[in-house]
Design a protein around this nucleic acid. Sequence first.
DNA 1: TCTCACAACTCCGCTC
DNA 2: GAGCGGAGTTGTGAGA
Lengths: 84, 84, 84, 84
Amino acid sequence: MSDPVAGDQLRAFVERIERLEEEKKVISDDIKDVYAEAKGNGFDVKILRKVVSLRKKQPHEREEEEAILDLYLQALGMGPGVGM
Amino acid sequence: MSDPVAGDQLRAFVERIERLEEEKKVISDDIKDVYAEAKGNGFDVKILRKVVSLRKKQPHEREEEEAILDLYLQALGMGPGVGM
Amino acid sequence: MSDPVAGDQLRAFVERIERLEEEKKVISDDIKDVYAEAKGNGFDVKILRKVVSLRKKQPHEREEEEAILDLYLQALGMGPGVGM
Amino acid sequence: MSDPVAGDQLRAFVERIERLEEEKKVISDDIKDVYAEAKGNGFDVKILRKVVSLRKKQPHEREEEEAILDLYLQALGMGPGVGM
DNA sequence: TCTCACAACTCCGCTC
DNA sequence: GAGCGGAGTTGTGAGA
C-alpha cells in the first residue's frame, strides 16, 4: 500500500530464488540417481560418498584432524592407527 | 582377482558426481547473488529467506494434514475417497 | 609437552557423554515399548506416530507464522507489539 | 462416538509417549551441555564426537570399511593410508 | 561465535 | 530371512 513497486520487486526476487532452488533440486536428484546407479553396479554407496568427500578436502586439513584424533585416542589409552 | 574393483567404472561414477556437484554449487552461488542483489535494493535478507522458506513449507503442511485425515478415516474403517 | 591432552579431563567428558547416551537409549526403548503396547491394544502404530508428530509441529508452525508477521511489521517500520 | 473407550486409551498412549519424549529431550540437552563444557575446556567438539562414535563401533566393522575404502582409492590411483 | 537449515547416516517396518 | 524403502536422528556447513 505504501509502495506498490516494492511489492513487485519483492515478488520478482522471490520468484527468481524459487526458480533457482528448483533447478538445484533437480541436480540433487540427479546426484542421488547416480549413486543409485552405482549401487546397482555393485558399488558401496557409503564408501563412494566418502571417496567423493575425501577428494574434496585438502590433504593437510585431513592430516590435522587425524592428528588431533590420535592425540585424543592416545590420551584415552586407545592406540592410534585406528583410522578415521 | 584381476580387477577387484572396476576402476574405470568407479572413476566414471565419481566424475559424474563431481560434475553434478559443481553445477549444484553454481546454482547455490546464483541464489546467494540474488539475495545480495535484493539486499542492495533495500530488502531485508532475513525476511526474504523467511518468506521463501514459508512458501516452501505451506504446501507440505497442507499435504500432511490431508495425510493424517486419511489415516483417521482408515482407522475408522472408512477408506479415503469416501467423501462426506 | 608433559601432557599435550588432558587425559583425565577428556576421559571424564567422554564417560559423562556415554552415560547420558545410555539413559537416552533407555528412554527410546521405553517409547518403543509404549508403541508396541498400543499396537497390542489394536491401535495402528503408523497413525499413532503421525498424531504425536502433528501435535509436536502445530505449536511450532504457529510460532513461525507469528515470527514472519513480526518481521513484516518490522520491515514496514511498525515494531512488534503495536497491535491492530 | 463409536467407542469412547478407544478415545481415552488413545489419549493415554499419546500422553505417555509425549511425556517420555520430553524426558528424552532433557537428556539430549544435557549431552549438548557437556559438549559445550568440553569446548569451554579447550577440547575440539568435532573430534570429541568422533571419539565417542568410534568407541561405539566394533573394531572389525571399522577395519572392513577402511579396507573397502582403500580398494576404491587404489582403483582411482589415490594411494591408501589416507585414513578414514 | 552462534544459530539454523541442509544433507548423511541409522534404524525400523515391510515385502518378496 | 533378507533386501528395500522411509522416517527419525545426528552431524555438518553456511549465514547472521
